[in-house]
């Protein structure tokens, strides 16, 4: 299941994400219902943080009002710079480091978190100009940030995350729970 490109009915080869990345999830980020994040880990250990397609921002035809990488007065993810092969100078992030805040036109605000430990390589500036990318292609062009885990932690950083199967079972239980009371 590729959350972006499901319109084509013809049989097709696995997508770029399917071929080279492993999907990891964090459900209900910081206890907030359905605020699910997805981490795409490339076989070279690089991680791309995206919204899971169950995230509230992507539901009910919401539209985005603003995206803010200024996560505090003193810190903006836009100032992140890395140099050289060893990516010196990048901000180091822990699991719950905020990456950005997204405000929808209905004035709901959501914080997107790193989910994994690692060095911030880049944030996606394209979504500032074209917020619709986030809605239309959340797992590719609408990515949030690219993070490089430490070499020695490249396996362990995903231990706290859910595999795709685990996440799907969380989501299906959630659906059952929601439909039962009503």
């Amino acid at each position: 299941m590729d959350c972006v490109e499901q319109t084509d009915t013809e049989a097709k080869a696995p997508s770029v994400v399917d071929r080279y990345y492993t999907r990891w999830y964090r459900a209900d980020m910081k206890g907030k219902p359905c605020e699910d994040h997805c981490v795409l880990q490339h076989s070279n250990r690089i991680c791309v943080v995206t919204l899971a397609d169950t995230h509230p921002i992507l539901q009910n035809g919401r539209t985005i009002k603003s995206i803010n990488y200024q996560i505090s007065n003193g810190c903006s993810r836009l100032n992140n710079k890395v140099s050289g092969k060893s990516k010196r100078g990048g901000q180091f992030l822990t699991d719950f480091a905020p990456l950005c805040r997204i405000t929808c036109t209905d004035e709901t605000e959501y914080t997107i978190y790193s989910c994994i430990r690692g060095r911030l390589l880049e944030v996606n500036e394209n979504i500032l100009e074209t917020p619709s990318l986030l809605l239309e292609k959340p797992s590719t062009e609408g990515y949030i940030a690219v993070i490089l885990p430490k070499f020695e932690e490249s396996k362990s950083i995903t231990e706290n995350l859910l595999s795709r199967e685990e996440f799907e079972s969380v989501v299906s239980k959630r659906t059952v729970a929601q439909s039962q009371p009503s």
């Binding site: 070279n44 092969k85 690219v146």
Partner: peptide
């Protein structure tokens, strides 16, 4: 490319 970003400068 993300594919080679682990060994080349950004």
């Amino acid at each position: 490319p993300l594919r080679v970003l682990h060994r080349r400068a950004l």
